[in-house]
């Protein structure tokens, strides 16, 4: 009996593990296709698009890295734009979150709802009026314009998450700061900052993923190729008079490296950040 139970659980585990393994392979397969393709010649990829490169050639990669010195420029732009967006969102949304959760005032719920309304409106549908707005402010063609617009559209979710998180802090802690003659600033420094790590990482990661992958907005705002981000570069590369699939795959393979490295080295934080924030919300 005991033996049977043991046997069953082992078998159960084996089945579960196999399911997990197969799924992982399926989920990762498209990425695998990219990396296999990147090491093939033009003839190879046409003859055998999904097989293992035989022989593997570094020619494609060399060509791309040699040709696309612009890749480094694009990487820099992506980092600058994403970094800027994260910084602005964190500062503004965190402050607003504190204001909306820790200060009692008339119309607080209304202001909160006002921000939340933005959740219902994606960037895509407001693109033209947004362009007009950016032009009025003289921000078309600049990276700052992309940053401001992206940050603005990230505000609703971030304010939502921060407010929810800060609401959980017991009022006594805040009162204690007040009694000690401190202000909200003290409270901010001694209570909020030390406990905010998870929520800050949640928001950073959400904004990071959105901003890094954003295609439409930078496409419409930026015109100088020297300002192009990585997604724009991929589009540019597989353009009108595109080269072979091996080169497109090679270019994508390289483009995926920064986010891949970031993700797999930080994945513990990425996932913890996402989970802690989302559950609170």
């Amino acid at each position: 009996m005991i033996f049977k139970q043991h046997f069953q659980t082992t078998r159960d585990k084996a089945i579960k593990f196999t399911i997990a393994l197969v799924t992982a392979f399926i989920m990762f397969y498209p990425i695998l296709v990219v990396y296999l393709g990147a090491f093939k010649s033009k003839g190879q990829i046409n003859a055998d698009p999904f097989g293992i490169p035989n022989p593997a050639t570094l020619e494609t990669m060399k060509e791309i890295l040699g040709v696309s010195s612009s890749f480094w420029q694009m990487l820099f732009n992506s980092i600058v734009i994403t970094g800027g967006t994260i910084a602005i969102v964190l500062i503004l949304a965190m402050a607003a979150g504190v204001g909306l959760s820790r200060i009692q005032f008339k119309g607080r719920q209304a202001v909160f709802n006002y921000f939340i309304m933005g959740l219902l409106f994606p960037l895509t549908v407001a693109v033209l009026p947004l362009m007009l707005q950016l032009r009025t402010l003289g921000l078309t063609g600049t990276r700052l314009g992309v940053v401001m617009a992206q940050a603005a559209f990230s505000i609703p979710l971030s304010v939502f998450i921060f407010t929810g998180f800060f609401k959980e802090i017991p009022q006594e802690l805040q009162d204690a700061c007040d009694i000690d003659g401190g202000t909200l600033l003290t409270f901010f420094r001694h209570v909020i900052v030390p406990i905010s790590t998870p929520v800050v990482s949640t928001v950073s990661i959400l904004v990071f993923v959105q901003s890094w992958n954003q295609f439409l907005l930078p496409l419409l705002v930026l015109s100088d190729q020297a300002h192009y981000t990585i997604p724009l570069g991929v589009m540019q590369y597989q353009g009108q008079f595109a080269s072979g699939w091996n080169q497109i795959m090679g270019f994508i393979a390289i483009s995926l490296l920064p986010i891949g490295i970031f993700y797999f080295s930080m994945q513990k934080y990425v996932i913890e950040g996402l989970t802690s924030g989302a559950v609170k919300g």
């Binding site: 402050a95 006002y114 033209l128 007009l132 401001m148 603005a152 505000i155 909200l184």
Partner: peptide
Amino acid sequence: GLILLLIGPAFALFTTFVVMPVFQG
């Protein structure tokens, strides 16, 4: 003042780049 300082900037950014374009639309 504190409310304005904390909520104001996010409010301004959000209003300028999200709400106004949406209403214009």
